[in-house]
Amino acid sequence: MIQTMNVNISATALKTIQLEAAAIGALQGYINEDFEQCVKLLAECTGRVVIAGIGKSAIVAQKIVATLNSTGTPALFMHAADAIHGDLGMIRTNDVVMIISKSGESPEIKVLVPLVKNFGNTLIAIVGKLDSYLAKSADFILNTTVSQEACPNNLAPTSSTTAQMVMGDAVAVCLMEMKGFSASDFAKFHPGGALGKRLYLKVSDLSKLHEAPQVRKQSTIKEVIVEISSKMLGVTAVVDDHKHLEGIITDGDLRRMLEKEIDTADVLAADIMSTKPKTIQKNELAINALEKMRQYNITQLLVMDGEVYDGIIHLHDLIREGII
């Protein structure tokens, strides 16, 4: 049986969060001229940002690389240990090299730094000790000094890696704003999954998968029921001869009509349709359709191509695509 210490789990968790929050808060004092010059350098870089690290800092480096790549700044990860065994070959003349290290004194870092300097590349250090070998060798310093690790022994990288991660995010977000990186740009790099679909999938991409149910104002109730049933969307548009929208009939409208004590033989579509249906243009993003459905608490919208009726987008379409 594994023996465990009797600790206050909630108190330990809260202390960890407080220490790491304090480490992040301290970064505000490190946003200085070096930070600004570093961001400007990266924004003007015609090559890639090659980011290296060792241990936990290497994992942080990979995350920052991923963030930069997905937000319009080309970046590569280079493990500090592998760099001296051939991976230095990935560095090109116009690249900027960024090395991440808490101590700035790791043996692998001490070997790597002079090699990068010999190549003539600009070196940026994300480092937690300003008097370290890495800090003194770098052209620019992004200070991530922390007063205490969240680890109870003040040893395991916790607060320090959090600070490194946040500093990398600060750089990436600044670069996004400087480059005018928009949601449409983001979609180009994230075409897969629900996130990508929220950014690029249009209403017409979904509505074209269905037939467009439609009747005329003079259509009989039987014709309305057949149209709604055959298209299986629970709704039909009411249009004129030029497909201009005149109204909408839902299966709910039919049920409410049948609840009334009236002779349905002479009832026409015009008698039960709603004249102000909710619509959306075919070229709008599908996510906008979802927001409109939520706003009006409905499950479908009539899709328009300008002034012309074009089809239906249903809540089930959005669910199927994983947008919800």
Rank of each mutant, 00 (worst) to 15 (best):
N121M: 02
Q218I: 14
F140V: 13
M1F: 09
S182M: 07
H316Q: 13
Y200L: 12
A43M: 04
G47T: 09
T144K: 09
E284Y: 09
A21C: 11
A138N: 08
V7E: 12
V303S: 00
Q281I: 04
A269T: 12
T4Y: 08
T162Q: 04
S274C: 03
I225T: 14
M1Y: 07
A286W: 03
M5F: 09
G306C: 05
N32F: 00
L302H: 04
G25W: 00
V146P: 05
H314Y: 03
A52T: 13
S184Q: 13
I64P: 06
E108Q: 12
A52K: 01
G234W: 02
A138R: 09
T220K: 07
T145N: 10
Y296I: 01
D139P: 05
M304L: 11
G322F: 04
L175K: 06
P152F: 01
I248V: 14
A22Y: 00
M98R: 03
T12C: 07
S70Q: 10
L19K: 07
T236V: 10
E108C: 06
V127I: 10
L302M: 09
T250A: 02
I312C: 03
A172H: 05
T67S: 15
H85F: 02
L41F: 01
T279Q: 06
L130G: 06
I324Q: 03
